[in-house]
């Protein structure tokens, strides 16, 4: 069974985004880190701020959002992003 992921303390995410710039800036109050995120990373974290998601759910919604195929390349990118976010303490997985 796939694990479900969600944002670590969703109310601790602060975003600054400029319409003419591709990458978003995120400040996470818990970890104290400030990060620059590509559009996929931004999308995934914002999604996980709203609700718990499995990697396949995330891959599907990212495909819909960016209007691309939900292929294995995207699935890998989602997986890799989740691992990175996890190591930064931005997301945690369901322990139920």
């Amino acid at each position: 069974m796939e694990r479900r992921w969600f944002a670590n303390a969703p109310d601790q995410f602060c975003w600054s985004i400029w319409p003419d710039e591709e990458e978003a800036v995120l400040f996470h109050q818990g970890s104290g880190d400030t990060l620059m995120l590509n559009p996929l990373g931004e999308f995934l974290l914002k999604r996980l701020q709203l609700e718990r998601q499995t990697p396949s759910e995330l891959t599907r919604s990212a495909a819909d959002f960016f209007e691309i195929d939900a292929n294995s390349e995207l699935a890998d990118a989602v997986h890799l992003s989740l691992l990175t976010f996890r190591s930064l303490g931005l997301v945690i997985s369901d322990s139920l």
């Binding site: 400029w18 710039e21 620059m36």
Partner: peptide
């Protein structure tokens, strides 16, 4: 300078 990288640097 891009605003996003300026913000990142100010934070750092």
């Amino acid at each position: 300078k891009a605003k996003n990288s300026a913000l990142l640097e100010i934070q750092e």
